[in-house]
Amino acid sequence: METLKVLDYSNVFIASYFTDDRQCSHSNREHTLIYLCSGELEIEEKGKKTILHKGDCAFMRRDNQMLLQKRVKTGKPYRSVVLKFSRKFLREFYQNLDKSALPEYAKRDKKSLCLLPNGRPDIKSLFESILPYFDSDIKPSEDLLKLKMIEGVYILLNTSKDLYASLFDFTDPWKIDLLEYMNNNYMFDLSLEEMANYTGRSLATFKRDFKKLSDLPPQKWLIKRRLETAHELITTGRKKVTEVCFDVGFKNLSHFSKIYKEMYGISPVNSI
């Protein structure tokens, strides 16, 4: 009789147990560490096939599409445990790192799949310590989940110095994604120097890197981004014009009204 069991705790730990073969298309939204307890897993990405056996562990970079073939092997069911690292968690982890200890020449690996060395006791210890929670169906606490995630990150960082750059999503060593940061913080009163610092860059490097991403200079990009959000909020009637002006980062209502009209051909008040 076929048995299928998938347990997902906070979209961080996921355990799969199958007694028949299964195939699925998998899109990694987050960086993922997968460990095979039994059975066999074939991962096909960009035409290349990698097979994981019992005790194997692999790191899958986020934002990559893969085809997974999960197989029962020599009478043993397919069983795997997955550990996911959210962007929020990795940012918090990075903020607490000793920056003076960071490797100087870490390079972001473009490969979407990295097979970790076999037989490492730290890998086996981490995943075997997780299994009892799935076997008993007792959900681990959020504090315990976080401890296991931290343990998983250190496994990766101890595997290769280049994984520092891959894990923390730096386009270059120790630089976080510019557009993601600015899209999350455009409404705050931050100078370009502060934005450069928060994204791990000098001001000159910040401007140079931003030029690769947009035809607009950073200040004009910020104004355009604020106006686009303001236009959406005003036209949908969710907030008053005065509230919108300050919420999106403008300090002066008359200045906001002027540049809004220049962009949309109508004043904010008349857009309601």
Rank of each mutant, 00 (worst) to 15 (best):
F210T: 04
L131N: 12
H231S: 09
I176T: 13
P218Y: 08
N28L: 12
N118M: 14
S16G: 10
A58E: 03
K110G: 11
S166I: 06
L222F: 13
L190G: 00
Y78W: 04
S214R: 03
I150Q: 13
S10N: 14
K148N: 15
A204D: 10
G249V: 09
Y105V: 13
S254D: 06
M195I: 07
R79T: 03
D8F: 00
S112A: 05
R208F: 06
E243K: 12
S136N: 11
R79A: 00
D98N: 15
E232Y: 12
Q95E: 15
T242Y: 06
F206D: 09
D135M: 13
E180I: 10
F18C: 08
P140D: 04
C114R: 13
T171F: 14
L7S: 05
T199E: 08
L67W: 09
R91G: 13
K139W: 03
D143N: 12
D8R: 04
E228P: 11
N184D: 14
L227C: 09
A165L: 05
T74G: 14
P218N: 03
I43Y: 01
R120H: 02
K148G: 12
K73I: 05
H26K: 01
S100I: 02
R87V: 07
Q23P: 10
K107H: 00
F210H: 02
M182N: 11
I266Y: 02
M263V: 02
F93A: 10
L4W: 00
D172A: 14
Y105S: 13
E193G: 07
Y17D: 02
V6R: 07
Q65E: 09
F18A: 08
V6T: 14
M187E: 14
P103M: 06
T32E: 13
S25F: 13
M60L: 15
E104Q: 15
I259V: 15
K224D: 12
I14K: 05
Y264G: 12
F250G: 01
P268W: 09
F250C: 04
D162T: 06
Y94N: 08
S125E: 11
Y35R: 04
F134V: 07
K48M: 03
Y181P: 03
N11Q: 15
E194H: 01
L147P: 03
F206V: 11
K5Q: 04
K207T: 02
V82D: 00
D63T: 11
T235Q: 08
N270S: 11
L7G: 05
R87W: 03
K124V: 04
K5G: 01
E42W: 07
F127P: 06
S160V: 00
T229V: 15
K161M: 10
V6P: 07
V153R: 13
N270Q: 12
R208V: 01
K148I: 08
Y17F: 00
R208E: 11
P217Q: 12
I223D: 02
I123E: 04
E194I: 06
F18V: 01
Y35G: 04
L33Q: 06
K124P: 04
S191A: 07
C245A: 13
K73A: 06
L233T: 01
